Amino acid sequence: MRKIRHSDVIKFLNENNVNFIIQNKEVVCDEYTVASLFNAIDYGFYYFSGDKFDFNIKNSLIFANKPIQSDRNSIILIKDIEVQMLYYKLLQYYYGKKSNGLIDKFTKIDSEAVIGDNVQIDAFTEVNRCIIGKNVIIGSHCKIYDDVVIEDDTIIESGSIIGTRGIAWTWNEDQSEKIIQPQLGGVLIKKGCIIGANTILVRGSLNENTTIGKYCHLAPGCRLGHGTKIGNYTHLANAVITGGNTVIGNYCFIGSNAVFRPKVKIDDSTVVGLGSVVVKNTTTAGKTLMGVPAKEFETKDKLSGMPKPKK
């Protein structure tokens, strides 16, 4: 478990010109455990953005936007900044993953690969003829194929395969043999993405790239078919699967284990419920898809289990 000192929290707030008031100074502790209210413990460091604080904890430090009735905990009352965002920024500042600039001796890198500045590549990863931007982190046991471009500040977690081939075929004249089409395209991962562990991105089929837009997050275990195009700032939760040439717009949220039929097109700001099977295009932006097969619904003002949609 990660620890954080009270003095470091205050230092961060002051350096970022945050307007705050400390309530219940008499119960301030020197050090706290970074914790979640889903697993609440004493001496924890939290944020709280709800209406009723009913957690049985003490000697903890809590970010809040409005006063909390809790004499046993120290409250940092934040003005003008949403506390979840501020809490995440603080944790990113102290604990965010940053490249160490080291390429492990047990990696295999093609002589034609172009590697940017301050790139970290961990052990037992193989990098073929590709282009990797600056400040990229590639975890252990990954495979990066030819014709892959990974832009700056992207993280590829362990066990991921980027640019493997898909399978397209047709029968020969008497249907005694399958004729395989070579997969000749590439993969483009734009700036600032996170590709979760054990994710597979199949390269484009012929003259197209499989493309991940900037600042996208793919949680572990996703499988993207050839020529899939993901817009900017889109989030795919665990184990999402897309068929070939699926198109998913900007600012979408795709729930865990969702499956997409090949060539489906999803408009911007679409929410797809977990386990849904998407078999047809959306009619307009900002809808919610749920079910098997997925049906289209109006998106609710308040959604659970996902970050707030972009306004």
Rank of each mutant, 00 (worst) to 15 (best):
E112Y: 08
F48A: 11
A285Q: 12
V119E: 06
T288V: 03
V34I: 14
K265I: 04
P293N: 13
I189T: 05
G159Y: 02
V28C: 05
Q175W: 04
G96V: 01
L201C: 09
S49W: 00
G192N: 14
I200P: 05
L289S: 14
F106Q: 12
K229F: 00
A258T: 05
H6V: 00
K265P: 02
V136K: 10
I81V: 10
D30W: 11
K191Q: 09
G305P: 08
V279F: 02
A40L: 03
G50E: 01
C130M: 07
I68H: 03
Y145H: 15
G44E: 00
S111P: 02
R203V: 00
L13W: 02
K287T: 08
I57L: 09
I179D: 05
Q69T: 04
N39C: 08
G192E: 07
Q84P: 00
G166R: 08
R203I: 00
D147P: 01
N238L: 07
C216A: 06
A35K: 15
N118L: 09
K178F: 06
E31S: 13
T33P: 01
A239I: 03
L218A: 08
H6A: 13
T282N: 15
V278I: 12
G50D: 02
I155Y: 04
G163C: 08
C29T: 05
I121R: 06
V247F: 09
E31P: 05
K134F: 02
I81F: 04
I195H: 04
F12T: 09
G213R: 08
D152N: 15
N209I: 01
E157F: 07
K214C: 08
E126G: 08
E82T: 10
T299R: 15
E208Q: 15
D153C: 12
C216P: 03
G163A: 09
I179C: 14
D122N: 05
D301S: 12
K89E: 14
L13C: 00
G196R: 13
I180V: 13
N56L: 02
S176N: 11
I4L: 11
K308L: 05
N17Q: 07
E82C: 13
A197Y: 00
F63D: 05
P293E: 12
E31D: 10
G44N: 02
A168K: 13
I78K: 14
A294T: 11
M1A: 14
I76E: 07
C222G: 15
I150D: 07
K311S: 14
P309G: 02
I167L: 08
A123P: 04
S74D: 04
I212G: 11
D146I: 02
K280P: 05
I161D: 11
A294K: 14
T283I: 00
E296S: 12
F260W: 01
V114H: 13
K214V: 04
N257M: 04
K178I: 00
V202F: 03
W171R: 04
F12K: 12
D51A: 11
S205D: 01
I189F: 04
I115T: 10
V272N: 03
T164D: 14
N73D: 13
R72A: 07
L13M: 03
I156T: 05
V202S: 09
F253Q: 14
I248M: 14
E126A: 13
N17P: 01
D104N: 15
N281Q: 09
Q175Y: 03
L91G: 11
A219H: 09
G101Q: 09
